[in-house]
Design a protein around this nucleic acid. Structure first.
Length: 117
DNA sequence: TCCATGACACTAG
DNA sequence: CCTAGTGCCATGG
């Protein structure tokens, strides 16, 4: 089959509130789509907003399994210290800078770019 | 089943 | 502000 069975690759920003009934990945995807351009959120923040506090590591695992070519803004997720913990930091850094987010000493200022839902 | 690992968070010093 | 230690939880060997 040519297309993967991911149906949320192209979802737009106007998603409905988090659906508790759906799978964890789906809920995480919905949260990702809420993060506005030019802002960032921590793994723990995404987990909490997805309705599963204390599952920050799970969020990281889900992001690592995103299909190649996804349109989800995975690059807007960083750790609570403002650091990029992605195995391939160069790509994420490029994407963040593309949105006007600048890093200082390898760190994003959550005070400036942190997303406040 | 135990143990190690991981795109984490939080606190103490 | 930075590092270490500890807590967490899903996975995989």
């Amino acid at each position: 089959m040519a297309q993967p069975d991911w149906d949320l690759e192209t979802v737009s920003g106007d998603m409905s509130p988090i659906d508790e009934n759906k799978k964890p990945e789906t809920r995480v995807y919905q949260v990702l789509n809420q993060i506005p351009r030019g802002k960032v959120a921590s793994y723990g923040q995404v987990a909490a907003l997805a309705g599963m506090p204390s599952h920050s590591r799970l969020v990281g695992r889900i992001l690592s399994n995103l299909p190649r070519g996804t349109r989800l803004p995975w690059h807007r997720v960083i750790n609570s210290q403002g650091r990029i913990t992605n195995p391939d930091p160069a790509r994420q850094l490029a994407r963040l800078e593309e949105e006007g987010i600048t890093l200082i000493d390898g760190r994003v200022s959550l005070k400036t770019y942190g997303w406040q839902p």
